[in-house]
């Protein structure tokens, strides 16, 4: 028997070992080849990802350039239009005050009204450009609620009266409360809502309530603007561009750029760290509450006016 012969037995075992060794070497060679293929595939993927990323970056850059160019164009155009428009408004004012006949006066006032509306839209475009450019100047100061209420009454009384609307501004229990806010931007937010309310109020009443959450140590300034008009569908989109695209452009619309103005004011409130809650529906009165946080500086010296570019532009675009 072969297995009884030690030398044959050893030869058999050696052949077996050789087969095992050959199998192992082949396995190693296959593994090497696979690793190399994997490495090459990986390099290829890396290169493709880098190429695609570069293409996307170039496309993004082109898009940003095109967007900035468009924004720049609209901003320049708006500025350019403001100058002659101011001239027209000034002259119309003079004409209205010196009209020879009642008919002349009513025509002039109608022209003035249209010019005012155009001016309002142009200002809104300029505001939009400022926010889109990512540079909004912040200036925080301490404001007394009672003073803010008086200021709003002064600013908007004649505007409302011209539209046969009665403006009521109160600060109630918060009259003497003091809070740190950006007055200019807060007023711009309120301008949207108060002018909106003045257009809507059917029976001629617009009420504004200025208050704080806690008069002794306020964390939030709250301003509620109410009208008793017919309400509207609150735009769902919080995105200004979408709001603009979705704005009602039909001849049947009743108010210009409603969605844009509300979105704009809402975003401004968010820029200040607050928000604007709008409660309205067709056929119901509208109530808007603007929440602005107390921005008391840690160090009073830092309360000075400053410009920041830390504005999240993607809030709007």
């Amino acid at each position: 028997m072969e297995s009884d012969d030690p030398s044959k037995r050893i030869q058999r075992l050696e052949r077996r070992i050789q087969r095992e060794r050959t199998a192992r070497e082949e396995a190693e060679s296959i593994a090497d080849r696979r690793m190399r293929e994997l490495w090459i595939a990986n390099q290829d993927l890396d290169r493709r990802v880098a190429d695609r990323t570069e293409s996307l970056e170039v496309a993004l850059e082109q898009l940003e350039r095109a967007t900035n160019a468009t924004a720049g164009f609209f901003s320049s155009l708006s500025h350019e239009m403001m100058t002659p428009l101011n001239g027209i408004i000034g002259m119309l004012d003079l004409l209205a005050d010196n009209a020879y006949t009642e008919t002349n006066r009513s025509w002039t006032e109608a022209a003035l009204k249209s010019a005012d509306r155009l001016s309002f839209l142009l200002h809104r475009l300029l505001d939009l450009g400022e926010i889109r450019s990512g540079r909004v100047a912040f200036s925080v100061s301490q404001v007394r609620c009672g003073d803010l209420a008086d200021q709003l009454a002064q600013q908007w009384q004649s505007h409302c009266l011209k539209r046969q609307k009665l403006l009521s501004v109160s600060s109630g229990a918060s009259e003497n409360a003091q809070i740190w806010i950006d007055l200019r931007l807060t007023e711009r937010i309120l301008a949207e809502f108060i002018s909106n309310a003045s257009l809507h109020a059917e029976s001629g009443v617009v009420s504004v309530e200025v208050g704080v959450d806690d008069p002794a140590a306020p964390s939030w300034l709250t301003i509620t603007v109410k009208d008793n008009g017919n309400g509207f569908v609150v735009p769902e989109s919080r995105d200004l561009m979408t709001a603009m695209a979705e704005a009602d452009h039909s001849p049947a619309r009743t108010h210009d750029g409603l969605g844009i103005g509300l979105s704009f004011a809402g975003h401004l409130a968010e820029l200040l760290g607050g928000r604007a809650d709008i409660v309205s529906a067709p056929g119901s009165p509208t109530e808007v509450t603007v929440w602005i946080p107390n921005q008391e500086p840690a160090n009073e010296e830092s309360a000075s006016s400053e410009t920041t570019d830390a504005i999240p532009v993607n809030l709007l675009l």
Binding site: S3, R12, R15, R16, Q18, R19, E20, T22, A23, R24, E26, A27, I30, A31
Partner: peptide, 22 residues
């Protein structure tokens, strides 16, 4: 047995070295 496998491989005249991934 393992020897049987050896014998079969040799009788078949094949290499008989197989790795699972080959």
């Amino acid at each position: 047995s393992a020897d049987t496998w050896d014998d079969l491989v040799e009788a078949a005249g094949i290499d008989g070295s197989y790795t699972a991934i080959g």
